[in-house]
Design a protein around this nucleic acid. Structure first.
Lengths: 200, 200, 200, 200
DNA sequence: CATGAATGAGGCTTCATTCAT
DNA sequence: TATGAATGAAGCCTCATTCAT
């Protein structure tokens, strides 16, 4: 297990970065929220950038793991992409702070953001893999798999974010009541565009 | 026509803000790029925030106008939503800097960003209106119009942004060659999920 | 008569300088309050300093004239110093803004303030002259005439200023109701310390 | 004992503020004179205003304490007011910088100055208390105690300030040679106006 | 390992002054 | 005479980072 203080710093950092964005987040605030001295952060992390990078990396890796876990036992392509979308939505709802961070900081020309996009690309590639698999099995009818994967990522992310921002104080519990309408919408909107209708 | 210097400032500001994001953008750089003294910016804009806000507002308004112009002469719902999506993609490609800004700065909890989300909401409402119209005409089969509109916005935006970031130095001319695959993808992915298949 | 606009600038300047002090007074505010363009001020005055200096000089000169007018027909020393003090108090009440300025800006090491102190010294010298006259006539018993003049200036000024600040929105009309207690106080406090009691 | 650097900052601040006034004093100068980095000041004080406020508050409190110490063992009213005035003069001479600051910045409409006037009012109230006490004992003959207190404050302050400014480079040692004439003047001028002459 | 006082580079903003019209 | 858009020097303040304890 990681050092206890490192965990507290990580938790506090997610909170503060999500609240303020990278630039406006203050190391003082992270230290205070983590209950450690500012110097302690620098004992464990080389810089603000590195702390943030660690955060995002770990976040996206968790997302990838989470998504993988949700689809590994599913064989049927349509069910698989549905599970993947559901996993995405669930993860964003349960890790709202991280979700905000991802969309907030994923775009931009700074070196840091370039790195994140690479990481996000990993995740989008995961989506693409499912699409390709379905295509090869003859269940999906997709010409541009990478573009489609991006579009799915965008659709699923923004739909959740909109809900999240619409009522910022929603507890996760409350957010869950939005889950059905979100999933239903994505299902209705995206699936028909993916599956090979000649099959139906 | 607005004052000449104000226009130069606006142009420079889009450039610099898009390049660096709000926080890392320097007023010095904007002034230099605009070819005016720093004080001149402050003669016309009260603050960095206000300059930025003006930019975004004008940007989204242009986007809304542009979209409206592209659908006003179209009656048939499916064609209308297709035209809308095409307009969105074209606008994002032709105003790449602004597009980056929108996605970069639209999320976050700062007051400024809250204001932008309100403005973006206006645009999403425009999308929704087209959806509702098609639904009322019996051509669309959609349960959650607002959610669907958000998802469409997300899908269309992210797909373009991914391309944009993939090769940052692409000239618009080059970007245009990506246009067909983007539109084809969105068309294939989204339209079937919107139209009422029982009609076909 | 002075140029109309110059007068308006002067009036506005008194207002603004009194409200904010020299440093925080903004030429913009003076221009606006005077109803002229900022450039117009610079057409008539070389700088902020010069405008201010002109103001103060004119103010103190007015005070000196005013005081002189009030004592020129008085021969008897005790009556003369009483008239002088009364004139001082009346002037400060009727030119509250200027009074504030005088006390506000009379102290300090800046060159400008050095100049004002010289001007104020002129006025204090006027007080001293009355004291010396009374002393020579054998009516006053004073050892240090300059010090005494300073003390009288301080006593009379601060007592009015305290009233002025105590209720800043007092109209002159209302201030006048404070006049008796102020004069009575100064009379009781200062006169006995000036006159030669052996005479009584 | 307060932290060492805070003391150095305080000392430097008195120096610089007294020399230039609040507005023209530069935080850079204070830092340099204190021998600390500019950031260090901001580590200990939230702003220029707060630093200044702390200074003035502490200064007036010191003045009040000093005055109290000088009168606490004195019972007889005339002696008491004489001791008070002497304490005032001594304090102003020994803390010339602070004295300048007090008169320089005590008048004005800025919030900050309003606060100081409140603090100065505390001190004037101390003077008034002595007057009231003497009046109740039947030794003083005063109608308006608050006005009289203000006038005494003004007389004593301005007389010292005039001397201070007259020769700005006077060492304290030299200033002390002015002490007798100042005290003698104030004594002659003010005391007779306070005491009940019917008693004599 | 942990602390928090200290640092100083860097950015936003203000405003007296100028000058072309 | 009068204007007001433009200027740029200068100052306050922030905050990531360091380092002695």
């Amino acid at each position: 297990m990681r050092h206890e203080k490192v965990d507290m710093i990580f938790q506090a950092a997610v909170e503060v970065f999500a609240e303020s964005g990278f630039d406006q987040a203050k190391m003082d605030d992270i230290a205070q929220m983590a209950g450690v001295a500012k110097g302690t952060i620098y004992y464990h992390f080389k810089s603000k950038e590195e702390l943030f990078a660690g955060l995002i990396n770990e976040g996206i890796e968790k997302l990838i793991e989470y998504a993988n876990r949700h689809i590994e036992s599913v064989e049927e392509p349509v069910a698989k992409i549905q599970h993947l979308i559901k996993a995405h939505v669930l993860f964003f709802i349960h890790h709202a702070k991280l979700a905000k961070l991802l969309l907030n900081e994923a775009f931009g020309t700074k070196e840091r953001q370039r790195h994140f996009r690479g990481k996000i690309r990993e995740y989008i590639t995961l989506i693409e893999k499912v699409l390709i698999e379905g295509k090869e099995k003859g269940d999906f009818n997709i010409n541009h798999t990478l573009e489609t994967a991006s579009a799915i990522f965008g659709a699923a992310s923004v739909i959740v974010l909109q809900k999240l921002y619409h009522a910022e104080d929603h507890e996760v519990a409350e957010m869950e009541k939005d889950l059905p309408s979100i999933l239903e919408t994505l299902d209705a909107l995206l699936i028909k565009g993916i599956v090979d209708v000649t099959e139906l």
